[in-house]
Design a protein around this nucleic acid. Structure first.
Length: 275
DNA sequence: AAGTATACCAACCGCTGGTAA
DNA sequence: ATTACCAGCGGTTGGTATACT
């Protein structure tokens, strides 16, 4: 039975298999702890569960989030009655339970998009995932490591050149800004462009794109997203995104377009000017 | 048929940056 | 200015299935 087949099992069978598996894992973990007397990870010390999720846990998490949303991941498991840490809940929701997750094989177009964006952005999986509706960063990362990387090696595609990098960047941005309405097939929809600009803001790497990101704080403020609280952050971001989509916030797009074109055209000057 | 290697993928871990106190 | 907390990100691990010898 393949992993994919397992996903399609009826819940009763799935439950039985998962339950059995969970027991085995728990026994194994306990005996391991007993044997080594090693310090157990914090989740287990707190009496929290680790490892694969059971269908019951999934059900609890889904219905809780559907009813109350996920304002505070840390508090969520306690409120929902789950013996999991917030981080684990968040991961499970984002990577598996979210209703808009697309299942099944990657299409040719998706593969091409991943390859192209990886050349452009490197291992910035969340940024890449933002361009692939329904796909998670984890899924894309896994797919990259298990399929695309090898294929790239086999075909010995040369690493992207600096000039090509700028050409690609230019092309993507032009595609993005050509249409005022978010087109389903365009590489960057308005929503995605907003996300892209935000992704740039949080970039940790010292790259040209990061230089762009540091300038982008102003743009965040422009869109009315000045100093959101931690809990409100995502909501405000969603709100800003929706607003942008509704109003087709061309000012912001124009701002980003100009900056990116400037960087793509003359990276060293831009770096100098930004210190 | 049994053992081993490889592929796949869910989940975990540790780090980072943003925010509030 | 400092500290603590939190969410999010990317790298890594570990379990299971499948292919190969």
């Amino acid at each position: 039975m393949t992993m994919k087949d397992r996903k399609c099992l009826p819940p009763v069978l799935k439950k039985a298999i998962e339950g059995e598996r969970e027991n085995l894992l728990r026994n194994k973990r306990n005996s391991e702890i007993e044997r080594t007397m090693a310090r157990a990870p914090c989740c287990e010390r707190m009496g929290l569960k680790k490892g694969p999720w059971t269908p019951e846990e999934d059900q609890i998490l889904v219905s809780f989030i559907q009813r109350y949303g996920h304002r505070n991941w840390r508090a969520l498991p306690k409120q929902a009655g789950l013996l999991r840490c917030g981080k684990s809940c968040r991961l499970r929701w984002i990577n598996y339970l979210r209703p808009d997750i697309k299942r099944g094989n990657f299409s040719k177009e998706e593969e091409e998009t991943i390859l192209r964006l990886h050349q452009l952005l490197g291992n910035r999986w969340s940024t890449i995932a933002a361009r692939l509706p329904g796909r998670t960063d984890n899924e894309i990362k896994n797919y990259w490591h298990s399929h695309l990387k090898k294929r790239l090696k086999q075909n010995s595609i040369p690493p992207i050149q600096e000039s090509d990098h700028h050409t690609l960047l230019r092309r993507e941005i032009k595609n993005a800004t050509r249409t005022s309405k978010p087109a389903a097939n365009s590489m960057f929809t308005t929503h995605q462009k907003i996300q892209n600009s935000e992704d740039m803001l949080v970039s940790r790497q010292q790259s040209r794109l990061e230089l762009v990101g540091s300038a982008g704080n102003e743009s965040a403020n422009v869109s009315g997203n000045s100093t959101p609280g931690v809990g409100e952050k995502n909501e405000k971001r969603d709100f800003a995104t929706k607003e942008s989509m509704n109003c087709e916030s061309s000012n912001v797009m124009e701002f980003w377009y100009n900056i990116l074109m400037e960087v793509a055209g003359n990276p060293t000057e831009m770096q100098k000017s930004l210190g």
